[in-house]
Nucleic acid binder design. Structure first.
Lengths: 145, 145
DNA sequence: TTCATATCTGTAATCATTACAAATATAATA
DNA sequence: TATTATATTTGTAATGATTACAGATATGAA
């Protein structure tokens, strides 16, 4: 199936100077469509159903290549394994300390007043907010209480 | 040697409801004095010289206890193992993408304009800035160029 | 088609972290 | 002080994610 997202991913890879191979397309598409910031293992397990010959090593290799091409970013926190996110600047992450899930936050990270000491060159920022998500705190979406 | 920091650490542990054992005191003091956000292994290797019976498991156990008591925090990033930091609210971290070192940044993370969606409860924030440190970019401290 | 190169795969190794049970130290009580 | 219960520490073994590496396959160029 050719979708807009697939076309876009293909163009992004070409622009980044890497070949849009089948495995790379599949992995990038999956991470962009998944909302849960999957680990390498999650990606492997889901895609292996569709690509029986897929190997774990290929997943790691591909993630490394895509990260190098800045089409993905690594949002690992608390040393709980690497989690991946399609690269989109200027958003943060909320991490539920109870269930461990990670949610995107719409944040302009540039709004933080940061004094970078002289000599340091900034290329990117990440803001992590820790706390409890609605599901774990028993929040009722209908009543907002 | 009894120092102000040691007394303070002892009081902190008592206040947090954990016993200020020898190993706990040593590990907390070391992390507070080290400026490099050490990994569990770094802590083990340094302290094992002074405490020959120290075990790696004790280091991990102690880090877990101290983190639970909120006397430490985990500043792991990029899935490169856990790194520890004496707990001090409101500061961020600069990570050099070349040498991998982590530097403290004086940041009021609360200054970031974050809209937490309804139902989410925030307890803590971390801001990571990625880039190149002075040493890796050949910055000359004397001339500031 | 042929060749060179890029990509992918499978197995085995590595290394940080955890599980667990035994040993030791500490505190509480008699 | 002696005894007992509990907390802390230790050592070994297991786990599990990640990486190394060499061979297989696919791709693009000549």
């Amino acid at each position: 199936m050719i979708t807009d997202m697939n076309l876009e991913n293909m163009q992004r890879m070409k622009a980044a100077g890497i070949r849009p191979s089948y495995v790379r397309m599949k992995i990038l598409s999956y991470i962009r469509s998944a909302s849960n910031h999957p680990t390498a293992d999650m990606i492997y397990k889901v895609l292996a159903e569709e690509i029986p010959t897929l190997s774990r090593t290929s997943v790691y290799n591909t993630l490394c290549v895509l990260e190098g091409a800045q089409l993905l970013r690594n949002v690992s926190i608390d040393g709980e394994g690497m989690r991946f996110d399609a690269f989109m600047p200027d958003h943060g992450h909320f991490r539920c300390t109870k269930c461990g899930n990670i949610f995107d936050l719409e944040i302009d990270v540039k709004s933080a007043e940061v004094k970078i000491p002289s000599g340091f060159t900034e290329t990117r920022r990440d803001l992590f907010v820790y706390g409890i998500c609605p599901h774990c705190s028993g929040f009722d979406e209908s009543t907002k209480k």
